[in-house]
Design a protein around this nucleic acid. Structure first.
Lengths: 100, 100
DNA sequence: TTGATAGGCAAGTGAGCGATTGCCTATCCT
DNA sequence: AGGATAGGCAATCGCTCACTTGCCTATCAA
């Protein structure tokens, strides 16, 4: 359950994929591949990205829909709510509270 | 940076430790060891727990203070805020939205 | 000081994971 | 039909990581 979620977040490449889908949801595998190598200088194979997407999907962070030969990947951040529900985070409560 | 945070959350034992510290902050290593084996049936060595605590501390999720021969471990959930700041989570917006 | 308690350091081992490679299927265009 | 595009499956390799074992240091009580 939660295991899948945290495992999915554990990899930096997967987190970058989430960043890309945050910026633009509904991308195909090839689009994501291009972005990773262009914007992030990530030299990774198409299958590598595909496997990452599978892990993200297992965690519920990515949902997919097929249209013809295209498969679009949509972001779903809802599972992240589990985290702050499990370990309540105190309010920022006004100005920054730097620890002197 | 964020790497330490997600790596720390990736392990189920470490998440259980966070649960225990949520319930009762300021425990010592031995207290945490006892709780893990008692309440959670986790057969893990003291050094194992110690290493986990070090990882959690590197992530900023646990802060420590020494008093004599005791070292107390306090929970700090503030780093978790990064997560929902990075990938905004939509409001539950009223009643539960179960996916039928 | 001796013994007991609380914790730390370091090396070794086994399993899981990220990544690649090679080949295969499905859809679209001409 | 044929080629090109978009994606999937499976086996393999290397490396990180969790965990253990063994020994060492520091604080407190008798």
């Amino acid at each position: 359950m939660a295991d899948d979620l945290f495992k999915a977040l554990a990899d930096p490449t997967r987190r970058t994929i989430l960043d890309e889908l945050t910026e633009r949801s509904g991308q195909t595998l090839f689009e994501i591949c291009s972005r990773l190598s262009m914007k992030h200088q990530l030299g990774i194979s198409r299958q590598g990205v595909s496997q990452h997407l599978a892990v993200l999907e297992a965690a519920g962070l990515v949902e997919t829909r097929r249209e013809g030969r295209y498969k679009f990947h949509d972001l779903n951040t809802a599972p992240l709510r589990q985290i702050t529900e499990r370990w309540p985070v105190p309010h920022p409560s006004g100005p920054e509270d730097s620890t002197p």
